[in-house]
Nucleic acid binder design. Structure first.
Length: 420
RNA sequence: GAGCCCGUAGCUCAGUCGGUUAGAGCGCUAGGUUGUGGCCCUGGAGGCCGUGGGUUCAAUUCCCAUCGGGCUCCCCA
């Protein structure tokens, strides 16, 4: 097709009317289920100060340099939020949410922005929902967060997932582990893939994620992080596993599941779907006991997850799960002639006033075309009016599914429709 | 940032070994039925064959570039 004059930016897509019902269905479902878990919604601005997002990302320069949308205006630096954990924590600290008492159990849904190369299930503007529980170091919080995450997918109908679980302990044990890992790999450094060799100094934990064939033999024999956990971390991890088992939530321990940022601690988890291709993570999360303090609050433990809406939808498509229902309208008013059209327009508000959805033709078309349109709009009834009906005060109500019609007064029609 | 594949109606796709008016199905629209949808029949609208350049008497077709899309690598807070 010829190039349109204006297009969306790379990796940004319109959500069109034909798909919006899926989104609304999912959003409603998430809000309803969150309510059951006593989670409260929080909405933060789309833009944050650059420093909030870049802070801590210091060493991960790839992210800063090529994956953040940012601009400045006067003295202020703006970024489009790439995730919501830091903004939610910022809000928690800025608004003194700890003063509400107890732990804060928060959830969110909304758009995020990352300037990455688009792939399947990865756009530059994408949507996440997630949970942040701030103020509890109890393994119960970890398990509730995981339970909610799984609950949503089960509710939607996605059950062929795999929950990967690990503990990455505190930064000190992770440092020790990194050294052990490097010591272990060093003798075979030359045999590692080029990518892994680069990671060796920069981010050795990422070698565990390597997709290169040649790395696999070395990864298999590597020491595992759980052997380097402190006593408290191990105890916490064991409790999490125990509670998950009590709840009959299946998980696979994955000692190679790690996190890049230093503020992550202890529990790490990921939900994987076989239906997604290269970007196979549906959701991921874990503990970040050091983040609140890093952002300027009191030392406060926290745990959460984030999940991709688009990926959820892709998984549903693969599995043939239909999200939501087809659109329909209660009454389509079909009119013949100017008088009838005028009358019909007026009745729309009467119908709507009785809590019915109602519409009519906007294009002055033939009766046949109006009927066809009513069919396309999935009308339950058509209300047909022409000169005869106007004269008699009785109107034709056609049940579109049954193909049956009755001649009724306006009041009878309203009564009948309200009963349905 | 790197690699591979792909760009023909709104959508899904034929097609042209380089040759005159570029096709189908679905969708849209009008009519067949001057007051009745889904099925059927007939007509119509809708394409600079993604864009720019090159080769050629001639390019939608071949070549190059570019833009866009897909998959993958890098990255994944």
């Amino acid at each position: 097709m010829a190039q349109p004059k204006y297009t969306t930016h790379l990796g940004m897509v319109d959500i069109l009317p034909d798909e919006i019902r899926k989104w609304q269905y999912l959003e409603n479902l998430i809000r309803e289920e969150a309510e059951k878990f006593n989670l409260e919604e929080i909405r933060t601005p789309i833009m944050e100060q650059t420093e909030l997002i870049v802070r801590g990302l210091g060493q991960l320069t790839d992210i800063v340099s090529k994956e953040i949308f940012s601009f400045s205006r006067g003295e202020d630096n703006y970024v489009l939020r790439p995730e919501l954990t830091a903004p939610v924590v910022r809000s928690y600290v800025e608004n003194h949410l700890d003063q509400r008492g107890g732990s804060q159990k928060l959830f969110y849904i909304g758009p995020m922005f990352r300037a990455e190369r688009p792939q399947k299930g990865r756009q530059r503007q994408f949507h996440q929902f997630g949970v942040e529980v701030i103020g509890s170091d109890d393994p119960v919080a970890d398990v509730e967060v995981i339970a909610f995450m799984i609950h949503i997918y089960n509710k939607v109908g996605i059950t062929n997932t795999s929950l990967k679980l690990n503990s990455i302990g505190d930064p000190e044990s992770r440092e020790k582990y990194k050294e052990a890992l490097k010591a272990h790999l060093k003798p075979n450094f030359d045999k590692l893939s080029e990518v892994s060799q680069k990671r060796f100094e920069k981010n050795p934990l990422r070698i565990l994620d390597s997709k290169e064939e040649e790395d696999q033999p070395f990864i298999e024999s590597v020491p595992v992080i759980t052997d380097y956990l402190s006593e408290e971390s191990l105890a916490h991890y064991n409790k999490v596993k125990e509670y998950l088992q009590d709840l009959e939530i299946e998980f696979v321990e994955d000692p190679y599941l790690v996190r890049g940022m230093d503020y992550y601690t202890q529990t790490a988890f990921e939900l994987i779907s076989p239906d997604l291709g290269a970007q196979d993570a549906l959701a991921g999360g874990g503990r970040y006991d050091l983040l609140v303090e890093e952002i300027g609050g009191q030392p406060t433990p926290a745990v959460g997850f984030a999940a991709g809406m688009e990926r959820l939808m892709i998984a549903c498509e693969e599995l043939g799960i239909q999200l939501g229902t087809e659109k329909e309208v209660d009454v389509y008013v079909v009119t013949l002639g100017d008088e009838a059209r005028k009358w019909g327009l007026k009745q729309l508000s009467l119908l709507r006033g009785n809590n019915l959805s109602a519409t009519m033709d906007y294009m002055g078309r033939s009766m046949k075309a109006q009927m066809k349109d009513a069919n396309r709009e999935n009308a339950r009834y058509t209300l047909i009016v022409g000169g005869n009906e106007l004269a008699e005060g009785k109107f034709t109500l056609r049940n579109m599914k049954e193909s049956e019609e009755q001649s009724l007064s306006l009041e009878e029609i309203i009564q009948k429709l309200k009963k349905d």
